[in-house]
């Protein structure tokens, strides 16, 4: 399992979105890394990529709204990190379509997404939870 219980922030809406994000990424990685032919994997991978493009933006927006609601001091820096990832997903998606669905591009995206997501939720988002707890 990609998701670990210690990633929970204690904010039900954000935790539910994180779990959904991890579930989708895990499913994406399982297809990406399966022994099936690239042609067979493509529909599922393309579907997940489309989902990610929309869901990541929606989730980041909700997370930022929560940060604003608690006056989180790291809001601007956190928002910049979100924008960086949204830009990366959009750029990869554009290159991927232009390359006529190049496998290497998707493998590279999968590896970076795995590390980025775990760090973002396990480290950066936990700072929000720490602040919220201290604030009471």
């Amino acid at each position: 399992m990609l998701w670990k219980d210690n990633y929970e922030l204690g904010v039900p809406q954000i935790d539910a979105q994180h779990k959904e994000l991890f579930r989708r990424v895990e499913s994406f990685l399982q297809v990406l890394r399966s022994e099936d032919s690239w042609e067979k994997k493509l529909p599922k991978l393309n579907e997940t990529l489309e989902f990610m493009k929309k869901y990541v933006v929606e989730h980041f927006h909700d997370e930022e709204e929560y940060q604003k609601s608690i006056n989180y001091p790291g809001y601007e820096a956190h928002k910049q990190r979100h924008m960086g990832m949204v830009g990366y997903v959009q750029e990869v998606s554009r290159k991927y379509e232009q390359s006529n669905y190049d496998e290497n591009l998707m493998q590279e995206f999968g590896g970076r997404l795995l590390s980025w997501l775990i760090n973002h939720v396990a480290a950066e988002d936990q700072l929000i939870a720490d602040y919220a707890k201290k604030r009471g």
Binding site: M1, L2, Q30, Q107, G110, G111, L114, S115, W116, N119
Partner: peptide, 24 residues
């Protein structure tokens, strides 16, 4: 550990995941 999957060789995926850790 991160993926919960079994990787046996360094490929584009592994190199990219490790690069991101260096970046972090």
């Amino acid at each position: 550990i991160m993926s919960g999957m079994e990787f046996n060789a360094v490929d584009v995926f592994v190199a990219s995941a490790i690069s991101e850790i260096a970046n972090i």
